[in-house]
Design a binder for these strands. Structure first.
Lengths: 331, 331
DNA sequence: CTGTTAGCGCTTTCAC
DNA sequence: GTGAAAGCGCTAACAG
């Protein structure tokens, strides 16, 4: 009986020896796609199981010249975006998915708005298996070389070459606005994301369309998903349109900032103004009043992007994940 | 003049050729530690610079049999701990530090309380360069083989073999309790972490000692750092000791949960009861009243653990990072 | 101090 | 379908 040396992990050579085939055959048998007879497949599989063989991802990566980690690149004006809880959540979800599917690690990068070529550079890095861009812009996506088009996925907008995985914020927005209309609100303002962020355009369009159907004019204030901007945006809105009776913020942090501003102005929520957010972060349930919001299935989205990248199933151009309305006390 | 083939990244062999030395010498010259003459060092360095050489971490990892990623293992009763914002923050900080220092990725794992041996398994994984355990228990730390003692660092308690990097929660607790005493509070309760979590023992000890000095008896309620437990803990405290005039929760989420409970009971904060948290999470500044808390320098801690692991400076047994008191409206 | 020579563990031509 | 052998790019003995 073939015994493997103690204190050394079994290698493919050990498996091959035990199965009575060459390493080449063992490699093919294990790799699903490669040509191999059914019997070889079977013998290699059992040998591997008996030995407790687990392939070495590093050696594989070196041989195939693919990388060993996934890069998560978050677009933003400053490196500060990396401290955002949203970025942390995407990273955690990606890391979990990546460690589960394959033995790959994840790294976090800032994609400066003023230097979109950084994305192209990341894709060329030898030890990066793929990159997940978060909130990319069109110029940034344009920097990914065609040769790397199956090594990039986007959480945000995509292109013909870069598949997109994102929350269906158009439907979510429509649902939320309809909820506000149904509860009697008519003068509905919206706190949007940053101007440069294309993936919120869909939400904006949905907002305009839904309001148009009910014949009410739009009221918009830009934000950047931070609480501070939410505060100033709410102030701006109530100053400019004092009769506003509902505010929908495209991010819970902004909504909570707006809540603080409204409280400061003596505006009652939801009595005077209904308030709704987006993302369903942990604190949305804890605020007073608790925040009506709509979920952002980040974990599912990140898992989708991760497996697509790792399995090279980057053909589908766009995948939208449904958001669920969470009714609480603020509306 | 030596030219490198187009469309191929320069390798160490290219650098060696251009510098007129062997690959071995080039390798040593680049590796700081290795023996190499000053002139060789210089020539190799310039050749590398001219070629735009960047070492391939995968090849290096294969040759040295070290891994290409850092594992962050979070201890907890269920896999749910991975969804905790705290875990996400630690991961993001580690990923940033790891990508900056070396080209290594990061992966996230759950360390089940009921199966502490999982930690030992992680350290034995061929492609894991090191593991950062978050909130480990003594039994878990006991499973790391002596041979892997320079491949594990802890954010929480440590052992002689596993260096510990943690916030100085003893001093932070003392400072916070003294602040409460100084503002006239005398019946101070504390919402602690989970019973099994050893690293909060230091905070507990500090609490007991500081109270003893002022002659006031302790009031303790266990928690698990979640908002839900914070709510029930606050209810328990106010039921059992109705004259409580201050509550210190060992986590902001618990504190915010407690805030909701107190509001529900009609208790005014800070009028009737002063409330303080720990961590200074983003929402702490947004609650009403805003939450007095004390910082948790997670980014610095993770960076410390990461570089210690990657540079094998795992000699110092314990490093405590200072926490800063943040005074807000809740006390 | 430096060059030569083996690997690290896996994938992939290229014949057979 | 299968085996032999040549790498992937780097580090680590081992002589000199």
């Amino acid at each position: 009986m073939v015994e493997v040396a103690r204190n050394r992990e079994p290698t493919l050579a050990d498996v091959a020896r035990r199965a009575g085939v060459s390493v080449a055959t063992a490699s093919r048998a294990l790799s699903v796609r490669g040509p191999a007879s059914a019997s070889a497949r079977h013998r290699v599989a059992t040998a591997a199981r008996e030995l407790g063989y687990v392939p070495n991802p590093v050696a594989r990566a070196l041989a195939t010249r693919t990388g060993t980690r996934l890069a998560v690149a978050v677009a933003g004006q400053t490196a500060h975006v990396l401290n955002d809880p949203y970025a942390a959540r995407v990273l955690a979800a990606t890391a979990t998915a990546a460690a589960a599917t394959r033995d790959v690690g994840v790294s976090l990068h800032w994609l400066p708005l003023h230097d979109p070529a950084e994305l192209g550079r990341l894709t060329e890095n030898r030890d990066i298996a793929g990159v997940i861009v978060v909130n990319p812009t069109t110029p940034a996506l344009a920097t990914v070389p065609r040769s790397a088009r199956d090594r990039v996925a986007s959480i945000g907008i995509g292109t013909r070459d870069v598949p997109s995985f994102d929350v269906d914020n158009a439907t979510a927005t429509t649902t939320m606005i309809e909820h506000l209309l149904a509860t009697g609100r008519r003068r509905i303002a919206m706190i949007t994301g940053p101007e440069w962020l294309p993936c919120t355009q869909r939400a904006l369009t949905a907002y305009h369309r839904t309001l148009a159907e009910s014949g009410t004019p739009p009221r918009l204030a830009p934000g950047n998903f931070t609480a501070a901007h939410g505060e100033s945006a709410a102030t701006t809105i109530m100053t400019r349109w004092p009769d506003t009776d509902a505010i929908f913020a495209l991010g819970d942090l902004s909504a909570l900032g707006a809540l603080a501003a409204l409280r400061g102005m003596g505006v009652d929520v939801p009595g005077d103004v209904a308030l709704a957010g987006f993302d369903d972060i942990a604190y949305a349930a804890l605020s007073h009043p608790s925040l009506t919001t709509t979920t952002n299935p980040v974990e599912a989205i990140a898992a989708g992007a991760t497996t697509a990248l790792l399995d090279h199933h980057t053909s589908t151009p766009q995948t939208f994940y449904p958001s669920t309305l969470i009714l609480r006390d603020s509306t």
